[in-house]
Amino acid sequence: MPEGDTVLQTAKRLHSALADQVLTQSDLRVPRFATADLTGRTVLDVSARGKHLLTRIEGGLTLHSHLRMDGAWRVFAPHERWRGGPAHQIRAVLANTTHTVVGYRLPVLELLRTKDEEQTVGHLGPDLLGPDWNADTALRNLLADPGRPLGEALLDQRNLAGIGNVYNCELCFLARATPWLPIGLLPESTAVLLVSTAKQLLEANRDRPVRTTTVGARPRAGAAPAPRTRRPVENLWVYGRAHRPCLRCGASIRKVEQDIRPTYWCPHCQKGPTP
């Protein structure tokens, strides 16, 4: 699931493969930019802004992409077979003398002037993994609409950038609140802790090959520690664990599909309304 940490790792891989090198091949397979030719230009930088990728290219151009649910960029050596999906799913190819990067199933791919980047990403809230991170601003953004469900507020990139559905479910569990609880009903101390925990989790996973939320984070104060068992180590508290026992209380984890996103929660540990 591409979230802020995954997108940052992708940006690092693309930067390593492309930055400071001249493009020897450029193929943007979307109708609007199919005739654009970036061959001969040097890639200056690849960076992440929330869940957006910005590839800056000589001449004041930026290739903006967004992975959404299942988009991906793959990096290959010259003459290496491309693996990532069938050819009809390829949306972009950029190559130099040492690497080829291929974008699969990219729902957003556009070429814009670097000076106009803010028109595309300027609406985003503080980036949990970016230099603009500001916890106070993120908290104010989240609490601006007290009646909004907690899960919706966390997923709104205008409040804070980088949280996707996995972190949404995990953060709600750690706050001991269902995703449908109006965020204004959270105690102030819990809301503050929620923001700091979001930052902590994404920072902890920014370089991990396998995302984990169960190391270094525990449910909110007052929760009994999880019993010692021989159960294999779990990477996530609730996400992807439908009908399996809660790692804290043993209750069966629930799941509901909403707007193509699955939501997971523990009916015992998390308080608040449910579907």
Rank of each mutant, 00 (worst) to 15 (best):
R228A: 13
L44P: 04
R206I: 04
V43M: 09
V7K: 00
N159C: 03
L236R: 11
L111N: 06
R113F: 11
L23H: 07
Q200G: 02
Q21L: 10
I183N: 10
A175L: 03
T263L: 12
T274W: 12
G4M: 08
G122F: 03
L67T: 00
A224D: 15
A11L: 06
A72G: 06
H268Q: 12
P78N: 01
R254F: 04
L54I: 07
G103N: 01
Q89M: 08
L142I: 09
S252Y: 00
N165A: 07
H79P: 01
L139I: 07
T39K: 14
A144F: 12
G4L: 00
K271R: 10
T24R: 08
A36W: 12
A138Y: 08
G151P: 11
I90C: 03
A138H: 11
Q200M: 09
L23R: 01
T62N: 04
R13E: 03
Q25L: 13
T62A: 13
W133E: 01
N134G: 01
P179S: 09
D27T: 01
H268T: 15
S196D: 13
A198P: 13
P31V: 07
I90R: 13
L202S: 07
R113W: 10
R105A: 15
C269R: 10
W73E: 02
L112K: 05
G125E: 06
G130T: 05
Q89F: 11
V30M: 13
R56S: 15
N96P: 09
G162D: 06
P78S: 04
A242I: 00
P225Q: 00
A221D: 15
R49E: 14
V195H: 07
L8Y: 05
H123M: 03
G151F: 11
